[in-house]
Design a protein around this nucleic acid. Structure first.
Lengths: 165, 165
DNA sequence: TAAGATTGATTAATCAATCTTA
DNA sequence: TAAGATTGATTAATCAATCTTA
């Protein structure tokens, strides 16, 4: 099974893409922290909880939606509970389970963070690219995602589901 | 300072891109660890060193090329030195500086990992895209990188420097 | 005083083991 | 015995402070 080395062009594309995504991540992370005091994991937990109208979710479902290990989520929730961003409630249906609930403070912080994050995304990512580039990037991302994890439900799928409903 | 919420198109592009990069990262990380026992940071350090013909590099340049904080690199190098993957040598030119050198073991591990990784990259990323898409992705990545961290030295710069030397 | 780099303390992520109830 | 979740130990990343030489 021979595998020829990457060409100079392939290497250049990969290195540049990889640097871009790591630096973009870093930039957004710092911006979020500076604007709202939340880390990216904090924000992701709260933003995921806010997808439910009652702002609460079972711990296991939260882990699934974020693609996290359960133990990582448990540690994260402990810290967020100590800071008053979420609380945990016993689950009536299943005494093994837990409801994770965003507090009023958590909701407030998450909503404020969302505004800043939108601006940061436009400033560092969406706004840097022209219309053709945005379209190309959507296509490219879709193709790669379909290869590495076809099971993940993208927004297209969500829209397709919604439109058939 | 008003910031309108993301349009559906913006959100779709961001969500798809973000899912793509996290799933791609996960896929490559698992593959690398399974094939070679190296973590992604281990591999990135070694692969970057191997870009020099003498397999050694100044610590600061290594950090720049990878887009890392110096302290992160220093801790990482300490661990890699303990495992025999790299060594550090005093720098004759500038007594404040350090040469980071890949050991024979480090080179061997990196070369073995590179074969697997090249196949994994083509399989999950480069090979999924056609020629126009690869070109577009290089342009897009360069533009975003230039915005979020213009100081980072891309391979283009490195080649430009090399060709003038 | 700045550049190059390291250190130590804090915080976060990962892994295996454990606890409780279905 | 499995599902839901937590815990504690280990490992890694981040931040501010420090050290040495240019």
């Amino acid at each position: 099974m021979r595998t020829p080395p990457l060409t100079e062009r392939e290497r250049d594309i990969w290195v540049t893409f990889n640097l871009m995504r790591s630096q973009l991540e870093l930039t957004l992370e710092r911006r979020l922290r500076a604007d709202s005091g939340l880390s990216t994991p904090d924000y992701d937990v709260l933003a995921t909880l806010l997808r439910e109208t009652d702002r609460m979710m079972r711990s296991g479902r939260l882990a699934d939606l974020m693609g996290w290990e359960k133990s990582r989520l448990s540690h994260q929730l402990k810290r967020m509970e100590q800071r008053g961003l979420i609380t945990r409630r016993e689950c009536g249906d299943d005494a093994r389970g837990v409801w994770v609930v965003a507090t009023a403070d958590g909701v407030r912080d998450a909503l404020a963070a969302t505004r800043d994050r939108t601006a940061a995304l436009r400033e560092n990512f969406l706004g840097v690219l022209d219309d053709d580039e945005l379209t190309a990037l959507r296509t490219i991302s879709g193709k790669v995602l379909d290869r590495v994890n076809p099971a993940v439900c993208t927004s297209d799928d969500a829209e397709a589901l919604a439109s058939t409903a």
